[in-house]
Design a protein around this nucleic acid. Structure first.
Lengths: 227, 227, 227, 227
DNA sequence: GATGAATGAGCTTTCATTCAT
DNA sequence: TATGAATGAAAGCTCATTCAT
């Protein structure tokens, strides 16, 4: 067997950029975006202030880069978490658990994505967070599949249900992030309960019909976003 | 009958404070908290810059005051909306509708409460938003009542369910606020669908048992917040 | 005789603005425009840095303001210096003397107007220095009048002659400003010689009349530069 | 006789230095000295930023080098232009024409020498521009020769007259450089008129001899500035 | 010599807040 | 109370210069 030769030019792992991103996540999470100083991030990354501007246009660009790049990772993790699961119900539970697992594994990143990102006026006004939409569309797909298979109710708007589900996860995430005592939540059980609520609802009795009546033939409440 | 004399110095209804608050809501909503300038607010209120500091400690205090005072109004409106409704189910629907009605009636305020408030590091870190908890506790009370009456499932944590429900409403609110075309959502129908989901769940068939099984005897996932 | 009443509202002589302008002239002259720091100017004027921005948009605006306001003063002085003089020849001599007198009286201002002003890219590119044109047009008027009266040659372009004359004065000004030993020039004699050249030219032609007389035995106005 | 062998490594005409100087002239002229970036110059010269520092101590040194080296060329051109002319009057006219010819041939360089050079505080404060003095001393020599020969007036200071003449040329140069429509000046006629003024003066005195002839019916060399 | 990634000093400008009137 | 001129801290960003390769 031929000996495997080490690459002669080991790609000079430009870790500076990576280190800046990681340091920024920590500093943004700790001090908040507005109060975070570039020099803090530079110090955290072990580079000079000016070096940051070799890789990012400005502070806001750094924040948005965190969103873009980390969401990409999160999306990959999500795909991996759902891989091999077929039933929508199983996939939903895995989705929620993955969401909270990500939260627990990277709390500083969670803080940045949940809270600091909204400090960017560029993000809040006019930015198109395609990666977030992708993240949501995975769930939306589950609903549509379930509806097509007849397993899920057809009278509910998938888009709206998706945002509601995401909102529920997100809000619990924020509360978990903000809570000093992080163990106040058992995130795994929380995930299951949220899925449980979305699947079976709050009602104790099975066939409560009257409440559903006004929704019997809902007009579409949400129109698709402009492309 | 003796003529009623107008008070010679009709106590000049100190509306300055009120005008400042209203101007601040508009400016915060339009420019964002960080970019909002005190002088803009002063101009909007028709007062001098310094006058604002007679009523508020600083910019952040003004933001938090908006939260406190407006939440009080919102709580009063909520009470009024639920008044006379007895069945938890009806109250829930009214709750969601009131939430979205408030949104539609005061979009600038909604923007401030949903988004700008989180720019305050004091609010995000360490502030105890009692008024928000009150707002949520109304819903939590519904769940507890329903559970006590046997109408709602006892295996779900009321606290967690409340935050999940609020998160769902909140996320849809944010999307509505951020959406350019506000009519993309029919907020009333959205309210009903969210309530529908939380009440009956997404599943098409009534008696899906297996999924619920793991949740049969949940340990309490949330412990009450420290007083 | 009615008592003269002091004005009840003695206009609160806003001397801050004036002090800033004067300080700026000194600092610009001493360090050069680019190297001058706003904080130096503020210190010189006895105000806070930020105060400067209440009166001027930015550093460049301050420089251009110096040009505009001081040129106005200079124009007034010029008018006064020419007042009562009728013959173009006399007026020219007074013009040159006024030019150099201004220089000697306000050397720092001269430095700013001669040299620092050109550091402003806004001034150099695209600014329309009307005040300077006014200053020049006074001289141009002299030429045109002299030409109309037949006292001056009609075959020379007044506009060009004006710029040439101004250039001669300006260059000598710069040399005077830059010279360490300011007494190397006798500016009054320099003024007369420049006027003499422009009036009679360099040629040793026969008909040198009255105007040449005072120059019959000129003392050397310029000593050679130190080696 | 032994054959002279060509050097095997024909010293690769280090044109980098030259290219840097030329690029610097263009960039300085276009953006101004202060706003010119080293990286722009490097890009223009097709070299790396650091390479510039192999040839020049710093940005200011580059500017001063332009002055030194280009003035040397200009001096050579001036010598060539005066070569063969004997009469001071002819040499003066050639001097002025050469000055303006240089201007027209190398407008970017003219911009740098006329305007940008003064942005260097080192040049303005304490630098001894020997090359410029050399340039002027050529003219001063003409005057002294003319005075010695009795052709020029002895009552005028040659040094002062030289600076005045140079100032006149310089000012017209600046106006030409700054003018958008460069054809507003006919530089050749301008040169002749300046020489004419310096030789014969402005007065409509009787003895206007040969030198005035070519100007008998001058076309207007300057058109009024756009309103 | 040549490169260009990295450095870090340096300064204008903003704007929340103060306080003399 | 009300004013608004004055304050001054604070930091993002640029870019000339360096130096390891």
């Amino acid at each position: 067997m031929a000996p495997r030769v080490d690459p002669p030019d080991p790609p000079p792992r430009n870790d500076k950029r990576e280190r800046i991103v990681e340091a920024a996540i920590e500093v943004f999470a700790e001090k908040g975006f507005a109060a975070a100083r570039i020099s803090d991030i530079a110090k955290g990354a072990g580079v000079a202030d000016g070096t940051i501007y070799l890789y990012f246009r400005n502070k806001e660009d750094l924040l948005l880069t965190i969103f873009e790049e980390k969401m990409e990772e999160i999306l990959r993790d999500l795909d991996r978490a759902l891989d091999g699961l077929d039933r929508p119900v199983d996939r939903m539970r895995a989705y929620a658990r993955a969401h909270f697992h990500q939260l627990q594994t990277h709390p500083a990143l969670a803080q940045v994505l949940q809270i600091e990102l909204r400090q960017s006026s560029r993000f809040v006004r006019g930015y198109r967070p395609e990666r977030l939409w992708q993240y949501l569309s995975v769930f939306e797909g589950l609903i549509r599949d379930g509806q097509a298979a007849g397993a899920l109710r057809a009278d509910l708007d998938p888009f709206l249900a998706t945002w509601a589900f995401f909102g529920a996860l997100d809000e619990l995430s924020i509360q978990w992030v903000l809570a000093r005592k992080r163990d106040r939540f058992n995130l795994e059980q929380a995930a299951d309960q949220v899925v449980e609520i979305f699947l079976h609802g709050l009602l104790a009795a099975p066939g409560l019909t009257e409440a559903a009546a006004p929704l019997a033939a809902p007009s579409p409440v949400v129109t698709p976003p402009a492309p």
